[in-house]
Design a protein around this nucleic acid. Structure first.
Lengths: 129, 129
DNA sequence: TGTATAGTTAGCTTCATGGCTAACCAATCG
DNA sequence: CGATTGGTTAGCCATGAAGCTAACTATACA
């Protein structure tokens, strides 16, 4: 009951593993059984199953057992959710860039008005924008 | 020296932690010193520094020390790199959907031609499409 | 019915992660 | 100079992740 990890935590953690990313990529191309999924990996089945389980609890993958075969498929919603996060960050980032550009323009104008005064000895910049 | 983890591994692992996502979000709005970044978090500085370090080695964050202040800023390239991964997956996914739709259309036509024959006992689908 | 197949459970190791304290530079400031 | 501030290094601890083997369940096939 102490485990308070958000959906995004789980999704990114799931995708941080190359095996699991490969599974997701494979599932993007269509559903598959656990055995089919495990085949290309040089790994004991129980270890592989753990990856499947991580993907499931993250919500990225759904599965259903029929007979003795468990078929896995991708849940596109979860994937889109994570993609959204990036797009939100990018939106903020780009807004900042716009503001920064505006700031540079302002600087430029001020410079035009003031001309070059001191011999610029600042190779590094400390400015907080 | 045995640690062979790809850039994407590191980026997703970095983003799997809510503290680090918060740092990235904050940096999206502009660069900041370590102290400024650490301020909202109830965490000892060395612990916080570890997060900064993880973000740096993942390539998401760059920093530069001037005087006794270290200023951090976002590396948008890394963020875009991760976003790309999602878009690639989505492209594959959507291509599959298109193929699936085509497949359903084909099924429909076949059904039209054949009518309902056997009492369909296949609730499950096994097809590798 | 008996055997092979497909997953699953249990339990163990090892190493990485995330947190802490304490002590330590190195710039600033009074 | 001496104290403060901002960051860093070192080292400890608890937890969780990623792998394994061995043994088990349950379906499918002959």
């Amino acid at each position: 009951m102490a485990n308070q990890s958000s959906r995004l935590d789980q999704i990114f953690a799931a995708l941080a593993d190359p095996t699991r990313r490969a599974i997701v990529m494979r599932l993007c191309a269509g559903e598959a059984s656990v055995g089919e999924l495990a085949d290309p990996f040089d790994m004991a089945l129980p270890s592989f199953m753990k990856h499947i389980h991580v993907l499931q609890t993250s919500g990225l993958v759904l599965s259903e057992k029929s007979g003795r075969v468990r078929t896995c498929r991708l849940s596109p919603d979860a994937l889109l959710g994570a993609e959204d996060w990036f797009q939100q960050q990018r939106a903020i980032w780009e807004a900042r860039l716009d503001r920064f550009e505006a700031y540079v323009m302002k600087l430029k104008k001020e410079k035009e008005r003031a001309g070059a005064k001191r011999p610029s000895r600042t190779t590094k910049r400390k400015g907080s924008e």
